[in-house]
Amino acid sequence: MNNTLRMVLVLVLVCIVSALSLSFLYVKTQPRIEENKILKEVKIKQELIPEAEKFVIKSLGDNLSVEQCYDKNAKLLGLIVNSYCQGYAGKIEYLVAVTTYTPISIKSVKILSHKETPGLGANVTKQKFLMQFVGKTGDKLWLKKEKTNGEIDSITGATITSRAITNSLREMLKNNKLEEFIEKLENKSVLSKPKGEHTTQTIQQQPQEFYSVE
């Protein structure tokens, strides 16, 4: 009995100490982890559309959201579509800069996060693959080996990943909601100012407050 009690006590004690130290560390590191995530997203967005300083997010259905990017003087610089697809080993999140007129074509693509195999599927983040999408419209987004008018070379050893991204981008460009959204933008003539007042701060200072939802 005494022995059993001792075993229970030691195990409970070890678990409590472990749980306490882990929760302490979680509280300490979590803000930094979140911040890293936002900084990374902002950095990628600025790579897609340099000089963009303000982003107005609008959600278009469950896996699609569009961000209008404005520079300091509230001039519309471009659109960034945020979406994801199912890759080989999990969700692949990506950001795409698209044209602000129809027919929509891709200006550039960046991968936000993925869980693909290192050395194979993880090569989707390489420029060599992503550069292929630049300037393409929806009907050309097929893998070369799957359709004659396709213009995308898949990554060696990672056909599933390449196909997932290509298909997802194609469907995104053909999405009715996205088309409607962009047509509306065109009809608004020269977009002078985004609705509502947005403060212009530098992103590095306060990333969180930089987003406003339309």
């Binding site: 022995n3 030691v10 195990l11 882990l22 590191t29 982890i33 890293n36």
Partner: peptide, 28 residues
């Protein structure tokens, strides 16, 4: 202070704790 019978569970808890520590630190 670890009783012989439960040494493996205790080891696992310690190892798992440090793995999570590494995970958080690397992410941050």
């Amino acid at each position: 202070i670890i009783p012989h019978n439960i040494r493996i569970p205790v080891f696992i808890v310690v190892i798992a704790t440090f793995t999570t520590v590494v995970d958080y630190l690397i992410k941050a």
